[in-house]
Amino acid sequence: MAALTSITQADVEKLCVTDTYNSSIIPSLEAYLNQSVASASPYSFQATKTLLKFYSFFPTVLNPPNSLKAMLLSLADFPTGNFGVLTFIVQPNESTQLQTYTERLNTIMRWGELIETGDFVTFWAEFGEEQVSLSLSLSLS
């Protein structure tokens, strides 16, 4: 397996094929996801889908920030239908223990709906509100 710090798209997509059901590849998939978020690697739908599938199969290893990052990455890959596919794998969890995660996931789902229906004006307005609330929370903390 390639080093986690420099895993390539080819490496990670090969893992998705050869170790489709081997959960030991989760750290590699997470490393690649974070590389993609940092714009250090191209987006890989296959790697993203496989990681979310593992989170779905094994809820105990669910990493909410990574799950949210994966959804945002696929949403930014507009206008492919990848985001729509992932919404069938990642379902909002009604568990009170993951309330914040569920709320944020619902926000992303809502953004996806707005973008995919071409309601960009509303989307940017809601996105702007999210940024304002972020700066408010940072100033209060």
């Binding site: 290893v61 909410p64 920030p65 949403l75 568990s95 993951l98 944020r104 929370s137």
Partner: peptide, 30 residues
Amino acid sequence: PQPTTQLSDKSRGVDDLPLTTLFPGFASAL
């Protein structure tokens, strides 16, 4: 796989990471 964290938002880092900081380049990429 063995769980490495407790089942709560706080322990999993969601509370401390708003959406816009999870993926700072989101708006630009979109």
